[in-house]
């Protein structure tokens, strides 16, 4: 017993124990307010709503409904398609900017550029999305501008109240989340590697493709995941600029929880969306690891 007590005392003074003790308040908070609620909605997804009460007998009915009902399936597929398109557009548009700031801006002005890029995103999200409605609308800024310049004869209608509008708005909203990880990855690249590549006879283009891009891939992968995972759950943008054909799964989750009072089905839809997004992300990571290994 004495040795056990002594060991316990020694352990309590060890680095590991002190670190655990220090992290414990934050960990406890996350366990209580993140892990427990997530576990609760997992449980809910196997229960059912019986008017005002919850029927706690195990059922897979919610999952059957969520995965076979045509409306839910369409919303889910559309959400995935929109999220995928947003991710692609955002990351492809963001890469040159990150590259420009990292490679062509003087070191003392980089912080200023990053600051300039992040500023627009600290204005109210709701108002920003609403302003895209003003820009893309029938009498909007874009249409009146193009009409005024004589580029088009009648207002473009394919840019508001559909999936395109959602993609444009979200690509704007998530821009810094794509730019920053890519920028960080580019900053880490040892510039002498590029010189070495040039000295060994590679051109600017092949140096970019064979040295810069592979080294920047961790940033690109992070950007893809940071944009793709949260956009699937966006509620505001589809509601404001999506129109009836641009609604996404989050809108249905909200309806189930707050209008139809069917928390179990709402929980199932939310979990299904997370499962699908999680699976796609893992597949994406796996493909990248394989792909990068092949490249090396």
């Amino acid at each position: 017993m004495a040795t056990l007590a002594a060991r316990l005392r020694r352990w309590r003074r060890s680095e590991g124990a002190q670190g655990l003790l220090l992290v414990s308040p934050t960990l406890l908070y996350a366990l209580l307010l993140l892990a427990a609620p997530l576990a609760t909605i997992v449980a809910f997804s196997f229960w059912s709503q019986d008017y005002l009460t919850i029927d706690r007998s195990f059922t897979l009915e919610n999952y059957r409904e969520a995965w076979t009902e045509p409306l839910f399936r369409e919303l889910m597929l559309r959400s995935l398609a929109i999220s995928g398109a947003v991710t692609m557009v955002t990351v492809i548009l963001a890469f040159p900017i990150a590259y420009f700031v990292s490679f062509h801006v003087a070191p003392e002005r980089k912080a200023l550029w990053i600051f300039l890029i992040t500023i627009p995103f600290w204005t109210s999200y709701l108002i920003r999305v609403f302003l895209w409605k003003v820009i893309l609308g029938y009498n909007g800024v874009l249409n009146s501008g193009l009409l005024g310049l004589g580029i088009i004869d009648e207002p473009l209608t394919f840019i508001l109240y559909n999936a395109n509008a959602v993609v444009i708005t979200l690509a704007h909203a998530w821009a810094p989340f794509a730019i920053l990880p890519i920028f960080v990855a580019l900053e880490k690249i040892d510039r002498s590697l590029l010189e070495a590549s040039r000295d060994l006879g590679e051109t600017t283009v092949t140096t970019f493709l064979r040295v810069t891009l592979p080294l920047a891939m961790p940033g690109v992968v992070a950007a893809v995941l940071i944009v793709f995972i949260p956009t699937i759950g966006d509620y505001v943008t589809p509601r404001l600029v999506g129109g009836p054909n641009g609604l996404m799964i989050a809108n249905m989750i909200q309806v189930q929880f707050m209008k139809l009072n069917n928390a179990p089905l709402g929980a199932t839809l939310a979990l299904s969306a997370m499962l699908i997004v999680g699976a796609i992300s893992i597949l994406f990571l796996w493909l990248n690891r394989r792909f990068l290994k092949v490249r090396q």
Binding site: P37, P230, A270
Partner: peptide, 14 residues
């Protein structure tokens, strides 16, 4: 990285 709506509904239910 978790969509905010997931955090919101999970907390609401609890």
């Amino acid at each position: 990285v978790l969509p905010e709506i997931i955090i919101a509904v999970a907390l609401l239910v609890v």
